[in-house]
Design a protein around this nucleic acid. Structure first.
Lengths: 177, 177
DNA sequence: AATAATATGTAGATCGGTCTACTATTGCGG
DNA sequence: CCGCAATAGTAGACCGATCTACATATTATT
């Protein structure tokens, strides 16, 4: 579904509210009827699909990093490098696809729930990686916060330095025995 | 200017694109003409003012935390506690006022520049605090990323736990000699 | 009187959403 | 293998609402 990809890209750049369905339809070439056929729920449903799509893209990076062998520290370091590559490839016009929705979703809304769900999934993934090496339980959340914050700063500063710096911070966090 | 305050609040909850000037006018009781009298640049200029206003609110917390004596670790710990209080008071419907704009500002735009400027200021403040105790230069950026990420997670999870956890991570970062 | 600010009216574009019509594909009884 | 109905999906006109912005008063203030 080309619409979802276009929406995901636009949302990551300008937020959900800043992206009109007209623009999505134009850029994807799809007619208006198709949107409401596949997504009877309208824009919200399309945004949700785009959110899950974007999250899936990031998840692929997580899996790739985790499977690349090495310890948790190396895997997370690699993940951050992959994220930095992603940012750079997008000309630093993007960020975390989930964050873009999370900061404007009304609390308690469907979309806010999906965001929470995705973050929980990511944190669980990190936790599994870290628990195998005996790190404290809360470390996964700290690493996630560090990465999310670094993604934001990377966008604002148009540089991969914040992410690289965050990677070093992760190492420091993991080195405390 | 009541309009700015209303706009700042709305932006932090729903993003700039998700907030119409009509709503701001209605909630602030100001007439339409007044907006374009005080902000000839229209919505963008109002958003910028709201952005600086929101950033100023956070800056007050930073100053308060820094002046409360104690070392850098204590000051940052207190800052995070104050931020958590702020989140809780808002029912976790907010986050960082700058982040809400940063994630949807077109790169290179006026607003994106203001966001970068504000973050730079915050990081400089943290850096001054940390440099006095001989911490590595990049630590300030790492702490800032941690806080921003924790603010985001705090909103999504509707809990102050991510911020409290981030505070412990900051301590861990600062304890490496 | 002159300026500052308030107070509306309205223009023009765009928004999300619904509607009907059209085409392609599939399933099925003979 | 055919014919036909049912379904899936495309296509775009159209609607009311809302958006930002501008234009034109009107009222305070000095």
């Amino acid at each position: 579904m080309r619409m979802v990809g276009v929406m995901a890209e636009a949302v990551e750049e300008k937020g959900a509210a800043g992206t009109g369905i007209n623009e999505v339809l134009r850029r994807s070439g799809a007619p208006r009827g198709s949107l409401y056929f596949h997504f009877p729920g309208g824009k919200d449903e399309l945004v949700e699909a785009a959110l899950r799509f974007g999250a899936g893209q990031v998840e692929e990076l997580v899996l790739r990093a985790a499977s690349e062998g090495g310890g948790a520290a190396d895997a997370i370091g690699l993940l951050i490098r992959l994220l930095a590559d992603r940012q750079e490839a997008a000309g630093f016009a993007k960020g975390c696809p989930v964050a873009a929705v999370a900061v404007e979703a009304p609390p308690g809304s469907e979309l806010a729930g999906v965001c929470a769900e995705i973050y929980d999934g990511w944190e669980s993934g990190l936790a599994a990686l870290l628990a195998a090496e005996g790190h404290p339980e809360e470390t996964a959340g700290q690493v996630l916060a560090l990465i999310e914050g670094a993604l934001l700063l990377s966008r604002v500063r148009r540089s991969r330095l914040p992410l690289e710096s965050a990677a070093r911070a992760v190492h420091a966090l993991l080195e405390r025995t």
